[in-house]
Amino acid sequence: MEPYNLTGALEFLLLGLSEDPELQPVLFVLFLLIYLLTVLGNVLIILAISSDSHLHSPMYFFLYNLSLSDMGFSSTTIPKMLINMQTHNKSITYAACLTQVSFFTLFVCMDSLLLTVMAYDRWVAICRPLYYQVILNPGLCRRLVLMLFFISFMNSQIHYLVVSQLKFCTNMEIPHFFCDIPELLKLACSDTSINNLFRFLLSIIFGFLPVSGIFYSYYKIISSIIRVPSLLGKYKAFSTCGSHLSVVCLFYGTGLDAYLSSTISRSTRENMLASVMYTMIVPMINPFIYSLRNRAMKKALQKIFS
C-alpha cells in the first residue's frame, strides 16, 4: 500500500489503558484525582516559595521552575485522556498529536535539565559554601533557566520535525493513552531508520549527559562529606541532598523503565504501566517529597494554611 502524509483532517485513535466499559469510570476517577493532586501539590510549592522570603534562594528558585515544568508535563497527557474517557471518543487529530509530542518532549527535557542544575546547586552549596551566593547569583540562575528552556524547546522542535516527516497507511490505532513517539514509529509504513537514529542520539544528549552531570556532582559531594569530621556534620550536609536525590532516582528510574519498555519486546500493558509511572505518578509525588523532607518548606506551607 502506498504511504501518504497525514493532514490535519485525519485522526489517530488512542486506545487508552483499557477498553473494558465497566473499568472506565474507575480509571477516570483515579486519574482525575492524580491530576488534581499533581496540580494542587505543585501550586502549593510555587505559592510557598513565592510568599516566603526565606525560600528566595537558588535551590528553591530551581524547585519553583521544576514545579511549573511538572504541571506542564502532566497537563500534556492526562486532560486529553480524561476527555476521551468522558466522551467515549478515542480520536485525536494529527495536529493535536504532533502538539502533544512537542510539549511532552519539551517538559521531559526541562525536568531532566533542571534536576541536573539542581545537582550542581547542591555541589556548590556543600563543596563551595563560602562562594555559593557569588557563583549562583540571581542573574545567573535566571539565565540558566532561560537557557534550559531554550535547549528544551529546540529538542522538542527536532522531535516535532522528525515525527512530522513520518508517513502512515491505514492503521491509525495507537495502543497508548497519548501520542508516544515509539508507538508512532511502529505505526509508520515509511522507513524509520533515520528517525530511530535521531531518537537514539537525542536520548544520549538529553538523557545520558544530564545523568553523567548528576553522578559527577554527587561524586564530588560524597567526597566532600566523607572529609567532614563529625557524624552530625555529615548528616546535615547529606540531608540537604535527600529530597533532590529521591526525585532524581524516581524520575530517571521510571524514565529508564518507560524507555526500555518501548525498545524491548514487552506487552502493551507493561509499556503503558511504565508510562503511567513516568508521566503521572512522578509529577504527583515530587511536591510531597520536597515538602515532607524539607523543614523550611513545611514552615512556609504552614504559613499559607494558617
Rank of each mutant, 00 (worst) to 15 (best):
G8S: 11
G41M: 02
N294G: 10
I151A: 14
F177H: 06
H244M: 07
T279K: 08
R122F: 01
S217V: 00
S152Y: 02
L231T: 14
L17C: 07
L113N: 10
Q165L: 13
S69Y: 02
F168R: 03
N65W: 03
I225M: 05
S262V: 14
T116M: 01
L201I: 12
H54Y: 07
M277A: 15
Y218C: 08
H88W: 10
A274Q: 03
G72A: 08
S193H: 08
K220T: 08
H176E: 15
S102V: 13
G207K: 05
S74D: 15
S152T: 02
L202E: 05
L185P: 13
I46D: 10
M71V: 15
I49P: 12
A296S: 13
K186I: 06
S267T: 14
I49L: 10
V276E: 14
T240S: 11
L10I: 00
K80S: 12
L301Y: 07
M147I: 07
V247I: 10
S243Q: 09
G255H: 01
G253P: 15
L66Y: 03
P283W: 00
I289A: 02
S53M: 12
I34V: 15
A300Y: 02
V124R: 00
I226F: 08
M272P: 06
V26Q: 03
I264L: 11
V101A: 06
C241F: 04
Y120K: 07
W123K: 11
V228K: 06
R227G: 12
S203F: 04
I126A: 03
K220G: 09
I222S: 10
S230H: 02
I264K: 07
M277P: 15
P58K: 04
M1E: 08
V211H: 05
S164W: 04
F149C: 09
